[in-house]
């Protein structure tokens, strides 16, 4: 069994990358491996938005990520610097920056780039999904 980390740069719905990453993650799990970490960077941070509301006949990417977390214990890490710039904040960061609302909730976690470095060192594979 191999442990995988995925790095997602792709914004949801704008390009195919997020969906490719999800389908790849599901295929990795189906082959008996573990997707330990998904790290969202750049426009990929939008995948973590709690406020995503796609039409009902389209894939709900946020829900698919949450399902991956629920079934595979995959950690869903969002780069805090990239997220803050783009309005992706959890309750704690909203408070710290005096913002009226937050847009990220567990299981998505805001973390530093150090977690990406850590994931690269810890896991057997790192696959990047670009926009």
């Amino acid at each position: 069994m191999l442990s995988y980390a995925l790095l997602v740069h792709a914004a949801p719905y704008s390009t195919q990358g997020s969906l490719s990453a999800l389908r790849f993650a599901e295929a990795v799990v189906a082959r008996g491996h573990a997707v330990k970490t998904v790290f969202f960077y750049r426009d990929g941070v939008h995948n973590a938005s709690t406020l995503m509301a796609p039409p009902q006949d389209e894939v709900h990417l946020g829900e698919r990520w949450r399902r991956l977390h629920a079934t595979s214990q995959t950690e869903l890490l969002v780069c805090v610097a990239a997220g803050l710039r783009r309005g992706l904040v959890n309750q704690a960061e909203a408070k710290r920056h005096d913002l009226a609302m937050h847009s990220v909730e567990p299981p998505f976690e805001l973390t530093g780039l150090g977690q990406l470095v850590d994931a690269m060192l810890t896991h057997d594979r790192l696959i990047t999904f670009a926009p």
């Binding site: 960077y41 750049r42 610097a81 990239a82 530093g112 780039l113 150090g114 990406l116 470095v117 850590d118 060192l121």
Partner: peptide, 19 residues
């Protein structure tokens, strides 16, 4: 675009972690 900036950010953080 911010590709360059966010790429260099990864370089600096990785180096700061001693790699």
């Amino acid at each position: 675009s911010s590709w360059l900036r966010e790429g260099i950010d990864v370089a600096l953080v990785t180096a700061a972690f001693g790699r």
